[in-house]
Design a protein around this nucleic acid. Structure first.
Length: 554
RNA sequence: GCGCCCAUGGCUCAGCUGGAUAGAGCGCCAGACUACGAAUCUGGAUGCCCCUGGUUCGAAUCCAGGUGGGCGCGCCA
């Protein structure tokens, strides 16, 4: 719709050029928006104000020239008006709006999907928590944002791949094995001092207990180093299984779990560094190898091979992103906790050194969740074993409420998650507000069915009967759904869907309380059934992208 | 010290990339079920959009400099 209007304006401006009313001007900044105030029409354009400075004319006069030269051969305009400093406001014909209902009923699940992706391959990497402990509530936000963004990209016609990067090649894995080793020594009766760099959580004791039950006293083996290595593999696998299960129950699944160890196979990291060295991005100071990230705006160069000969995490990460690109993705999106923001410049430098455009990698920072219990902050640390697990939240709050909660704010703003509030299944929780709207509509449709009124086709109703202001508002709101999705994709802002849903549900509730859908008037009832069915469809479509259920009854 | 993010009613936050009178929810006050589901709705009060300058037809939004808060600044991952 917006595009149609832009084209209309552009043609008019051209016509004005021809008649000498306006000079040649740059039209790239024409914007069409939905005015906050309905009195200002269905759409408004700032075109005259933009042109005013270029054309050196009064904006209202320009608006008038454009208005007079509009060629509405399609007949979509009811009227236009000039207002304020020079806005050109458009009021569309009601029929045009009502056709949205037809589109929704015909397109069903696909309504709202604009195929702007055109099959472009995009990869989203998220969660990627070290498999050294169960997922906690802090990981949940990134998981939901990544999952919903993936859904959104899919809806908009991208070929999406979801990936979890398993950091299983670093020191932290060794500490995991060591943690198990210490617990097992305890179980065999030894008195030990549990080290600070080991993990204290109860899950370590459970894993150790399992091993002890199976193997008894011989579990500690002969050689300390190989035993710890063995434990870290066992524990890593058990924990990763748990993570997968938690994510699945949270509605988050991945196409690929990528192991960091893969990168070292056949000296992959080393070979990549050699390549980069040949291109002059890597230099040695005699003891260590440095990557020249300053060449692309980083504050200082970064170490890739340590003095002890071991590659850094960064070295592996360069190889990882090179690997991603080699798999044919056009765009990569990484979702990180905001505490990693300092890492962005060096990774972006790296992908440019790999010959990619800076924009081929987009990094979304998700602010850390501030966990509270009845208003009091709760300290969390994987190492100390003090944390609230994702599992716990799922069991107590439920998938839908938890997911919705994490989608209510922009991802770059801090989020307070109060356990006591979240656990309360009260009407304070907005997810119920939206789901209730859906259940209510289902209830209406059920009841109509019982009275022998099945849902009519759009062709069978008289759309003009939907003339109440609330009905027009609802229809316009639904017409904006595709634009909303497109905006959310372009800005990578999933919270927009939440706000849209809340507003649509609110409009429906208001309408419901004021008007009766099913009445003695058969024609009116039919039209209104189509209207509420359309609302239901849009609610379902949006909730599906959010991974939140749309219950028929509550 | 340097860098990134944030600052909007009492609280939690939106504000569609610069538009017309700055909006929701919670909380507070007053109302609405013999009704298609009251997990709902209707009405009411509350604002130096952190401060100071700048950019222009127009700024909560963009720029500069402050103030206050969060987070980073390893040859950890």
């Amino acid at each position: 719709m917006k595009n149609k209007l832009i084209a209309l304006i552009a043609r008019s401006v051209e016509a004005c050029n021809g008649k000498g009313l306006l000079p040649e001007v740059d039209l790239s900044r024409i914007e069409i928006e939905v005015p906050a105030n309905p009195e200002h029409g269905d759409y408004a354009s700032n075109v005259a104000m933009i042109l005013a400075s270029q054309a050196k004319q009064n904006p209202r006069k320009i608006a008038q020239s454009i208005q007079e030269n509009l060629d509405d051969s399609e007949g979509i305009l009811e009227r236009t008006q000039i207002a304020g400093p020079g806005f050109l406001n458009f009021v569309l014909k009601d029929d045009l709006w009502r056709n949205v209902l037809r589109d929704i009923l015909e397109q069903k699940d696909r309504y709202g999907c604009v195929p702007i992706g055109k099959g472009k391959k995009i990869q989203l990497e998220f969660v990627s928590a070290n498999p050294t402990g169960p997922l906690h509530i802090g990981h949940a936000r990134g998981a939901v944002v990544g999952d919903v963004l993936s859904n959104l990209f899919e809806a908009e016609g991208y070929a999406v791949s979801r990936e979890y990067y398993i950091n299983d090649a670093g020191n932290q894995m060794n500490n995991l094995g060591k943690s198990v080793w210490y617990r097992l020594r305890e179980l065999t009766g030894e008195k030990i001092e549990f080290p600070d760099n080991c993990y204290r959580g109860d899950y370590i004791k459970e894993i150790s207990g399992d091993i002890f039950r199976k193997e008894g006293g011989r579990c500690l083996g002969e050689n300390e180093e190989t035993t710890i290595q063995r434990f870290n593999e066992i524990a890593g696998a058990v924990i990763l299984d748990g993570i997968r299960q938690d994510l699945k129950d949270f509605g988050v699944t991945f196409d690929c779990y990528f192991s960091e160890k893969e990168l070292y196979r056949e000296n992959g990291v080393g070979r990549l560094l050699d390549d980069l060295k040949r291109q002059g991005f890597i230099y040695s100071d005699g003891e260590t190898l440095w990557f020249k990230t300053t060449a692309y705006g980083d504050d200082k160069d970064r170490v890739v091979i340590r003095k002890n000969g071991e590659p850094t995490y960064f070295a592996a990460d360069i190889a990882y992103h090179a690997n991603k690109f080699s798999r044919g993705f056009d765009t990569l999106i990484d979702i990180w906790g905001a505490d990693h923001h300092g890492y962005i410049p060096r990774l972006q430098a790296a992908i440019q050194a790999l010959g990619r455009d800076k924009d081929d990698l987009k990094i979304i920072l998700v602010q850390l969740v501030n966990l509270l219990r009845a208003g009091e902050p709760v300290a969390m640390s994987t190492r100390s074993g003090e944390f609230v697990t994702l599992r716990e939240v799922l069991d107590e709050v439920g998938k839908d409420a938890a997911r919705y909660h994490f989608l209510m704010r922009r991802s770059d703003s801090h989020l307070d998650f109060d356990l006591e509030v979240a656990k309360k299944q009260s009407n304070e929780n907005p997810v119920f507000y939206v789901q209730y709207a859906h259940a209510r509509i289902c209830s209406i449709l059920r009841m109509a069915q019982e009275r022998g009124m099945s849902l009519p086709d759009f062709a069978a109703i008289h759309p003009a009967l939907l003339a109440e202001p609330e009905e027009r508002t609802l229809i316009k709101m639904m017409a904006r759904y595709p634009e909303m999705l497109e905006g959310a994709v372009k800005t990578l802002e999933v919270h927009r869907i939440t706000f849209y849903l809340n507003e649509l549900a609110g409009m429906f509730h208001g309408y419901y309380n004021k008007y009766k859908v099913v009445t003695e008037d058969a024609a009116l009832s039919s039209a209104r059934l189509v209207l509420v069915e359309a609302v239901r469809q849009v609610l379902v479509n949006a909730l599906k992208i959010m991974g939140v259920g749309a219950p028929v009854k509550m």
